[in-house]
Write a protein that binds this DNA or RNA. Structure first.
Length: 171
DNA sequence: ACTGGGTAAACAG
DNA sequence: CTGTTTACCCAGT
């Protein structure tokens, strides 16, 4: 596992990689990590391949934060997900910036029209937010629904994409 | 605004 | 396997 920090206008994200690809993205931490030194063992593991993935991830992340399409992505390591979760996450990649789907629409798209609630669960388990755009999935009637990284992030990401005509959620 | 029933997946035990 | 917990949804109050 190799981690890298990605500074952006909205804070410093952290991306984690395995040999299989990008495995996770963490939102900026409130707590200021006294950053600086990197673990030397990680440096040894780093390969040209991973270095390329890091560049692609940083570029894609910044572009999505600007409301644009991500451009080329590194391979995504979804090996920790179940078959169902991978189907949901895969469907999320087809939602363009500025567009939204509802949980039940995603359920229908993957061929399980009664699994809207389970789709919510899979979105909550998405380890690669922003690039796998679970923030573009809303509840029925345009309500905001939930977001693991906090609803503020969901609102901010949607606003950046000009997709902010949903009713406000409690809270 | 609040409830209750229906529904499906993941997880703890 | 059984119970509990969900980023759900819809029809009734």
């Amino acid at each position: 596992m190799h981690a890298t920090r990605i500074p952006t206008k909205l804070g410093t994200f952290t991306a984690r990689f395995t040999e299989g690809g990008l495995a996770a993205i963490d939102f900026p931490e409130r707590t200021k990590t006294n950053g600086r030194n990197s673990d030397p063992s990680e440096t040894l593991i780093a390969s040209a391949k991973v270095a390329r993935w890091k560049r692609q991830t940083a570029s894609a992340l910044k572009r999505v934060l600007e409301g644009r399409r991500p451009g080329p992505l590194p391979p995504l390591d979804w090996s920790q997900g179940t078959e169902f979760q991978r189907r949901v996450w895969s469907a999320l990649l087809d939602i363009a910036p500025g567009n939204t789907r509802s949980y039940s629409e995603i359920a229908r798209i993957i061929g399980q029209p009664r699994s809207a609630r389970a789709v919510g669960g899979a979105c909550g388990a998405n380890p690669i937010p922003v690039l796998v755009p679970c923030h573009r999935v809303l509840a029925a009637g345009g309500r905001l629904g939930g977001f693991s990284g906090g609803l503020d992030w969901k609102r901010r990401l949607l606003a950046r994409e000009g997709a902010i005509r949903f009713t406000l959620a409690p809270g």
